[in-house]
Design a protein around this nucleic acid. Structure first.
Lengths: 156, 156
DNA sequence: CTCGGTGCAAAGCTTTTGCATCCGC
DNA sequence: GCGGATGCAAAAGCTTTGCACCGAG
């Protein structure tokens, strides 16, 4: 009984399949299981939570394989990695989800996604100015809730 | 024989002094020694390199104290922390050095600083739109050298 | 059949913590 | 002298590595 997947997933699987083929990497069931699990998540997640949620299901893979596979998925742009806090890396699916950036609330710890076209022009301007070809960026805004009723704010 | 320090350092020391006083924190020689070491560096550095360079000099402090003091220095905006790579946190002095962002070259691993006023307006727009008060940000551009002679590029 | 991939556990690295000692206030 | 700060080493937490076994091509 296959998991219900969003429509894009067929394409994603195909992309991964081709990538593995072109790079001469093996198409193991573990790799596809991890891809599937990643795309079933709608939020950011860390390695441990991915590992645990797979452990509960039919696919038990080792942490080492999770790390290895995520690296491959990042290489082929199907997954992106963020370093929000100080230690734990956060991952999220990347295919077909338009480029966005993150705002992190210091009160709630909530992560909100946003998109501003001006970032793209900054990329271009700065790249030209400094003589680099900018191919990616990461913008994080650190913010405070304006909502005074925010439960975390009250606890502080 | 005092180390030669840049002109701003007197002010910085004074700020730290007042901050410790206001917060009821103790003015230990270790804390000022770390402040001095931080401001003697002109680049980004990690905890280990700071610890080692102090170990060579008259001030030997423990790693725990380095971490503790850097946290205080960040609280009073005399130091800023960045998470460029995946693991090691990078620090840099922050007083009187105008707000800037970083471009990281994927070929050289060089870190270049830049400044673009448009980021500030993005902060404001997005904050208003999402109902948050944005108080800080981090923008990192990932780039490739246009210089074909870059030694790292040749090695790849 | 070969060799890359997996799983497991151990090791590695950065950072945090516990506790006895020390010293700023 | 009190209570916070330091130093040391041990522990914690995320990630990587080594090695034997497995299975995709």
């Amino acid at each position: 009984m296959p998991v219900v997947l969003n429509k894009k997933f067929g394409v994603v699987k195909q992309i991964f399949n081709s990538y593995l083929e072109n790079k001469g990497l093996r198409k193991t069931p573990e790799r596809f299981a991890i891809l599937e699990e990643v795309y079933s998540k709608d939020d950011h997640f860390d390695v441990e939570s991915l590992f645990l949620s797979m452990k509960k299901k039919k696919y038990q893979v080792s942490r080492a394989t999770v790390y290895n596979t995520l690296d491959i998925l990042i290489e082929c742009d199907l997954v992106s990695r963020h370093q929000f806090g100080q230690n734990i890396a956060q991952y999220e699916k990347a295919y077909g989800y338009k480029q966005h950036d993150h705002l992190i609330c210091d009160d709630c710890n909530k992560v909100v996604e946003f998109c501003d076209p001006r970032i793209h022009s900054i990329q271009q301007t700065v790249g030209e100015l400094l003589g680099y070809e900018v191919f990616n960026h990461s913008l994080i805004l650190y913010a405070a809730c304006k909502n005074e009723n925010c439960e975390n704010k009250i606890n502080k």
